[in-house]
Amino acid sequence: MKAKMDLIVNGKRLDGRGPEDLREIKITSNVIRNAAGSAYIEWGANKIISAVYGPREALPKHISDPDKAIIKCRYTMAPFSSLEEHGKPGMNRRAVEISKVTAEVFEDVILVDSFPGNEISIFIEVLQGDGGTRAAGITCAAVALATSGIPMRDMPYAVSAGRIGESVVLDLNKIEDNYSEADMPVAISPRTGNINLLQMDGILTREQFRQAIGMVKKAGETITRIQKEALIKPYQEIAEKYMEG
């Protein structure tokens, strides 16, 4: 049962956002020296690190594919990542599912045919979670992959939309997610608009679904811009240093 809770008052959400507003997103690329690529994202109160290793020999041997690289993903939440109790470290059933659907997003965009017999491992660790961690994790991992130089057709982004009362809203935080009527994380390849991840539970009409996808695609322009800025920034800094001379 949903407890009664006013999540939207006078068109404003608890944190002051309007229905279509994203939380503030900051991405830093190249944060883990040992990895082939990495990124750190702050998305509202979410704090997530992602790192990519590979292409490297796929292990154990029997899982390797002679035609293409296999994509492994491991999404985990740190035991200290929530305001509530100490969590269990490692993978629970939720993490297994999120890891699976996340790997599937990147299988579609990475040029896997280029690396037969290899694996590419994507690690996503949630340091602090405040709703929408799988979406923020995918957005962050896409940047980590781009910094690794692994060839991709597209750089996906993800964000969730949902329903609070009768309103469709974008980017639900933890408390909104807990009391919302529906939550729907979506990942999209911006060049084609193809939907690479779609999950949903709750209660949604067909019209609200269309509205939600529309909001996600609109927000995608902003998220893609932030992702690209994170990729360019280290080079800009070097360029500026040389300009100063």
């Binding site: 994509i71 699976k100 659907v101 790997a103 599937e104 299988e107 579609d108 729907m184 390849s189 084609t192 608009g193 193809n194 939907i195 690479n196 991840l197 779609l198 999950q199 949903m200 539970d201 709750g202 209660i203 949604l204 009409t205 067909r206 679904f209 269309r210 996808i213």
Partner: peptide, 21 residues
Amino acid sequence: EQYIRAMQKGLSGSFTQSEIE
């Protein structure tokens, strides 16, 4: 009868919005 209650996309390919609709 009235509402979408859950959705899950799977596997490594994608769908267009109109295919899902």
